[in-house]
Amino acid sequence: MLKMEKLRPYVCVAVNNFTRGTYPVHRIDASGLFYQKDQGKVTTTPPVEHPLPRPCISFSPSPCRSGCGVLDFLGLFGLCQKRNLLAAVDYQGVSRVYDVDDCIVNITPAPQEPKCCEPVSIDLGGAFYVLDRQLIPGRQKCFEALTFGPPNLFGTPRWHWRSIQPPPFIFDPGYETTRIGAYTVVGDSSIMISTPLGTYTFDTMSSSWDKAGDWELPFHGRVEFFPKYGAWLGFSAQDNRLCYSSKVGATRHQPVLDMVWDDPNPQLLSDYPNPQRYTHIVKSQLVHLGSLEFCLVRLYEDVENELTEHGTIPQMERFIVLTGLVLKPSESGSGIEMIPHKSQLYRFEGVSNCWIL
């Protein structure tokens, strides 16, 4: 759940450096995404390209027989509403927690089952909940929580994983693997997941599942609750545009979207040669920076076949665009207005994946 305090003035971007087999994490200063309050009227400008800052840390996964191992970043979480801890786990289940503020790495006990393929992760009620995004039939340990304490033999509290009851439908006869399309927090203690089989809620207090309905949420990916306006912010399942709904969790019926905003960077692609190549958005995320400020992150991809003397070789290019956003009540007082500020572009080379944290 989003809080109104100023949380953090940065965005963490983790990448997979396929050439070196490492995962550097870059901490990008988000203050450059916003105009000063005394700067007058905000105007949308084309993204300015910047080099990625030097990595604040680089992870190396456990090796495997085929070479470099695979690692997945689970997201940011923390204690006492301070989300400054970055969790990462590799294919062997080796778990690491990195303190972004103090630059300290801690090795934590491994989860009972490895978590991969960008699982669902939610920081709620002093625990960090992690659930497989692909729900495989009968997989008992697909849902776990990373919690702090109890103390070890030396009396020192520690992070540890505990298994949680998985969604009940994965044990139904004839059930086939299903992907979670959207997820969010409802109230102070419930996690909601949306699948093609319906939408379900998990109460973290009673550790019980309940089916909200046979419908899906009109979002895709993570949906954040914005308590100041009683609205859930995310991306439309229909066209990947930023949107919000005030109806999530309010009834047993499928919620509708109150507003779908236009892309704040319509001029982005026109500034590049062959702009039609840069229409594939791989990933969209909304990062809450605190108060009314957000960062919209879009990961673009272009794959072009290059003809060489050795045959056709696909060449991939990826870059992210970060846009500062401020949300405030609309002038009519009947909704929320999105005000885009500055945009920055960061280009990758030879990167096979990217996590925005």
Rank of each mutant, 00 (worst) to 15 (best):
residue 284 S to V: 02
residue 350 G to S: 09
residue 266 P to T: 08
residue 75 G to Y: 07
residue 340 P to W: 03
residue 11 V to W: 00
residue 321 V to S: 12
residue 350 G to F: 05
residue 127 A to I: 00
residue 265 N to A: 11
residue 330 S to D: 05
residue 294 F to H: 02
residue 207 S to M: 15
residue 52 L to P: 03
residue 150 P to M: 12
residue 173 P to R: 02
residue 319 F to G: 02
residue 70 V to G: 03
residue 267 Q to Y: 06
residue 210 D to M: 10
residue 307 L to I: 14
residue 192 M to D: 03
residue 158 R to V: 08
residue 241 R to K: 12
residue 321 V to K: 04
residue 90 D to M: 07
residue 176 E to W: 03
residue 353 N to C: 14
residue 13 V to I: 15
residue 119 P to S: 05
residue 312 T to H: 08
residue 30 A to M: 04
residue 357 L to I: 10
residue 148 F to N: 01
residue 128 F to R: 07
residue 78 G to A: 10
residue 75 G to D: 06
residue 345 L to R: 13
residue 52 L to A: 10
residue 197 L to M: 08
residue 332 S to H: 02
residue 215 W to K: 05
residue 109 P to G: 04
residue 105 V to A: 10
residue 336 I to E: 01
residue 12 C to V: 09
residue 22 T to A: 08
residue 9 P to F: 06
residue 278 Y to W: 15
residue 47 P to R: 02
residue 158 R to M: 11
residue 86 L to K: 02
residue 52 L to Y: 02
residue 351 V to A: 15
residue 14 A to I: 12
residue 74 L to I: 13
residue 126 G to Q: 04
residue 222 R to T: 01
residue 120 V to C: 10
residue 155 G to I: 04
residue 351 V to R: 09
residue 67 G to A: 11
residue 316 M to E: 13
residue 55 P to D: 01
residue 129 Y to L: 06
residue 127 A to R: 05
residue 277 R to N: 10
residue 206 S to Y: 04
residue 192 M to E: 10
residue 156 T to N: 12
residue 296 L to A: 04
residue 83 R to H: 14
residue 340 P to M: 03
residue 320 I to N: 03
residue 162 R to N: 06
residue 41 K to T: 12
residue 212 A to K: 12
residue 85 L to V: 02
residue 335 G to R: 07
residue 58 S to L: 03
residue 350 G to W: 03
residue 178 T to S: 09
residue 76 L to R: 12
residue 199 T to W: 10
residue 129 Y to H: 11
residue 215 W to L: 05
residue 246 S to G: 15
residue 273 P to I: 05
residue 351 V to L: 13
residue 354 C to D: 03
residue 353 N to H: 14
residue 72 D to L: 01
residue 51 P to E: 09
residue 180 I to Y: 06
residue 314 P to D: 11
residue 346 Y to D: 02
residue 90 D to E: 06
residue 61 P to G: 04
residue 133 R to G: 02
residue 54 R to Y: 03
residue 75 G to F: 10
residue 208 S to R: 10
residue 318 R to F: 09
residue 82 K to H: 06
residue 115 K to Y: 01
residue 328 K to G: 02
residue 290 G to F: 11
residue 136 I to T: 14
residue 57 I to A: 09
residue 166 P to S: 12
residue 300 Y to T: 01
residue 176 E to F: 08
residue 241 R to N: 11
residue 76 L to S: 12
residue 280 H to K: 13
residue 241 R to C: 12
residue 166 P to A: 11
residue 113 E to V: 01
residue 311 G to C: 04
residue 73 F to T: 01
residue 52 L to M: 13
residue 263 D to S: 14
residue 72 D to V: 14
residue 184 T to H: 05
residue 90 D to Q: 07
residue 160 H to A: 13
residue 78 G to L: 13
residue 320 I to C: 15
residue 290 G to R: 04
residue 216 E to D: 06
residue 295 C to A: 14
residue 214 D to L: 09
